[in-house]
Design a protein around this nucleic acid. Structure first.
Lengths: 216, 216
DNA sequence: ATCCTTATTATACATTTGTATAATTAGCAG
DNA sequence: CTGCTAATTATACAAATGTATAATAAGGAT
């Protein structure tokens, strides 16, 4: 009796792990942590549930990997924007603006991040990822600030970077969760003028947000 | 056969609902949303699980009530601090400082708030509570700003209140999740000087944090 | 005292969840 | 072509979860 068994292809470990992480993040973003069950994740990744445990020791293990991936992605996206110019003030402005518009400032991102908070508390490994990511982001911000004329003092720059980072995070959070309450581009403007005030330094207008039209 | 049944006292509806809400919030704060099961909530509230559905139509219904309670409590605590003086600048300073120290700035509070975010997205009632609470808080902040000398323009005050609110929220979030990374009182100081810079107005030092020693 | 309402307990149930294990087969080595 | 390894499917399972309902008794009304 040939029972019809689901056909499949063997894939590399890297491919499968990546697909599982992507599926987990998507599901968490759409329906919250409770939506990311092993079965739902497996289905979206195109495999059956049992295979998850072949690539991750447990579901928590997969969760950790997904969190690390998310945080690395967010930092990378923000950093990329500041590389287009050599002027320190313009770099800072681009960095801030990139953090306050899509895809970084986005409701799903905020909810995704929020959904991980409790895991971060409980799991030391996730706490380490959290702290490292935050400090990495803030250090980069501090470096941009120290590069400004007259802002070379590291101790002062640290305090300023904490404040500026808070402005960015707060606006990111509010813009993501209440996007209807703000006009397009309003968060970038507010963030830039607030940071210019905190630093007591003029900031040039940031590069415009890229349209959805891309090079083919 | 006298089966020994758990003894109980009848309580008022208000008492029971309050106990259930408190229990749900505590459990969510300690172990995340997943820890707040109907059985765990009932146990902490001192009743059996079945009774929850006697006071709330469903678990989601209880969750809604708990969220509303949390948000109202946080706003009230922040507002209370600003009533001790008549000077607008001092009121603002007290308001900001209260938001950036315990019990408002606290890791459990942040995680609690974060745990609700996904529910807020899905449930229109919770979204309404979220928006109302945020706007209420921000309106109060805007009122404090407009009371400052030379800051009477409502349109300008709105933008300033968004920025200041972002500073507060960002510092609240970071201070709550990474409390080890900051010295005691550091967040208040940073918040106050950042807001003073954004508003371009000097702010007096806020009232000191009340010690744990209380009037007997 | 007795009855009655209903708050409360206790139990049952279907579903879902993470995990574990056996059965298959894809794809490469020989 | 033939085996062999392990990637993959399929199935099973115990625990947990939200919900529903029957049994009980607390406490006021009469």
């Amino acid at each position: 009796m040939a029972e019809d068994r689901r056909p499949y292809r063997r894939e590399t470990q890297e491919h499968r792990r990546e697909a599982l992480i992507t599926a987990a993040l998507e599901l968490m973003a759409e329906g919250g942590p409770q939506a990311a069950t092993v079965r739902a994740i497996a289905a979206r990744a195109g495999i059956t549930a049992g295979l998850i445990r072949h690539y991750f020791q447990s579901k928590d293990d997969l969760t950790r990997a997904a969190y690390a991936t998310l945080m690395e992605r967010m930092t990378a996206e923000s950093l990329a924007a500041s590389c287009a110019t050599d002027d320190p003030a313009a770099q800072l402005a681009a960095f801030v603006a990139a953090s306050l518009r899509p895809p970084v400032m986005d409701g799903e991102r905020v909810r995704l991040w929020a959904g991980f908070l409790h895991h971060v508390r409980r799991d030391p490994k996730m706490h380490a990822v959290h702290e490292a990511t935050y400090l990495n982001y803030r250090d980069r911000l501090q470096a941009l600030i120290q590069a400004l004329p007259g802002k070379g003092d590291p101790a002062k720059a640290r305090v300023l970077s904490i404040a500026c980072n808070a402005v960015i995070d707060g606006l990111w959070m509010e813009g993501g969760t209440l996007s209807d309450s703000f006009a397009a581009g309003e968060m970038e403007q507010i963030g830039l003028s607030a940071i210019a005030a905190i630093l007591n330094v003029p900031l040039p207008p940031p590069p415009p947000a890229p349209n959805s039209a891309e090079v083919p």
